[in-house]
């Protein structure tokens, strides 16, 4: 039986290898001079006064795809919450307080606001420099967990009311949808970037709806990551199984 499987794998692998080689030979040359899609994307981004072309492609020209990606993250976190919730045969133990060395605790408490502000800065400057909603949201959520890494879990639980973060996650997704629907209500298409003025190039208020969609995605990603980590932390630190059942 094992040999049959290996033979099947060899046949499939050879076929895949042959197709891959044929495809690679048909690729355009690396780094040529004509980039038809790139030229059009950059031109569209500059017409709408968005300095970061990636942000323009993500939140303006292909904003619908970003809606799909945001839904994927939302669904993944929802699945984690369902899978990792406390089951009937588990109970919650109190997390034990921790004694952390003073320099480490001070570092965590000083760097936490710095990292939060950096996360917000990355979200706000998404249309100007590399960054955007996703990157800044993950940084802000990780910054919050410095409180767990530098102090202990009870400190984190105090500043992290989970219901608030779950609500803000859902609210952020709805904000993205509402911003898209505003385009439909105004007579253009879903997620069209024609409602707001394009502003001055290379300033914070430029790009039309791109900064707003950036902010919505940033809020969604930060809340989603906090909820995800909260479920993992609860399972690792608090929830225990009942004995002797």
């Amino acid at each position: 039986m094992n040999r049959l499987r290996l033979v099947l794998l060899a046949v499939g692998g050879t076929g895949l290898a042959a197709l891959l080689v044929a495809a690679c030979l048909g690729l355009p040359g690396f780094g040529g001079r004509s980039h038809p899609y790139g030229a059009r994307a950059v031109h569209a981004s500059l017409t709408r006064h968005t300095a970061n072309t990636i942000a323009s492609v993500n939140f303006d020209q292909r904003a619908y795809d970003t809606l799909g990606e945001m839904s994927i993250l939302f669904a993944a976190v929802l699945g984690c919450v369902v899978l990792l919730r406390q089951a009937r045969d588990e109970h919650r133990a109190q997390p034990q307080p921790a004694e952390v060395a003073r320099p480490v605790r001070r570092y965590a408490l000083i760097v936490l606001p710095v990292a939060l502000v950096t996360g917000l800065y990355v979200v706000a400057h998404g249309q100007l420099s590399p960054g955007g909603g996703f990157q800044g949201g993950v940084v802000a959520a990780t910054a919050l967990h410095l409180l767990y890494l530098g102090a202990d879990y009870r400190a984190l639980e105090r500043v992290r009311p989970l219901a608030v973060f779950e609500t803000s996650d859902a609210l952020a997704v709805s904000t993205y949808l509402v911003l898209g629907a505003a385009g439909v209500l105004a007579g253009t298409s879903f997620l069209a970037n024609t409602l707001l003025p394009y502003g001055t190039f290379n300033t914070l208020s430029s790009g039309g709806t791109v900064p707003l969609l950036n902010a919505a995605v940033g809020m969604e990603v930060a809340s989603a990551v906090v909820v995800l980590l909260a479920n993992f932390l609860d399972q690792a630190v608090e929830i225990e199984e009942e004995h002797g059942s």
Partner: peptide, 20 residues
Amino acid sequence: DVGLSQLAVGAALTPLLIML
């Protein structure tokens, strides 16, 4: 942009999830 995403996720988030 992609590098920033990779850094944000791979530097602290993925190790934390695995270690938990």
